[in-house]
Simulated assay, not measured.
Amino acid sequence: MATTQKIKTFLWFDNNAEEAVRLYTSLFKDARILQELRCGDAGPGPKGSLMTAEFELEGQQFVAMNGGPHHRFNEAISISVTCETQAEVDALWSKLTADGGSEGKCGWLKDRFGLSWQIVPSALPRLLGHPDPARAARVMQAMLQMKKLDIARLEEAAR
Rank of each mutant, 00 (worst) to 15 (best):
Y24I: 07
D99P: 01
G104L: 12
F13G: 02
A137K: 15
R159I: 00
A142E: 15
P44K: 09
E155T: 12
R138M: 13
G114A: 06
A87H: 02
E18V: 10
Q86Y: 11
P121Y: 05
S102R: 14
V120F: 00
K105C: 05
Q60S: 14
K148L: 05
L27Q: 02
S78N: 11
R138N: 15
G114V: 06
T82C: 05
K148R: 15
L149Y: 08
R22N: 12
L144T: 07
H70G: 15
L144P: 02
A64Y: 00
T3G: 14
R38S: 06
R153W: 05
A20R: 00
F55K: 12
I77P: 00
M1N: 10
I77R: 03
A53Y: 07
G43D: 07
F10L: 12
A53T: 15
L92Q: 05
V120M: 10
L154F: 09
D30C: 01
M51W: 09
L34S: 01
W93A: 01
I151C: 10
A134L: 11
E88I: 04
L144N: 08
I7S: 08
F10I: 13
T9K: 01
A2F: 10
A152T: 14
M146V: 06
L109A: 09
L23K: 03
A98S: 11
N15E: 13
Q145N: 08
Q5M: 14
K110Y: 03
S116P: 09
G101C: 06
S49D: 05
E54M: 13
G67L: 13
A31M: 06
T9F: 04
M1F: 10
I79P: 01
L154Y: 08
I79K: 01
Q61Y: 06
N74A: 14
R135L: 12
R32I: 06
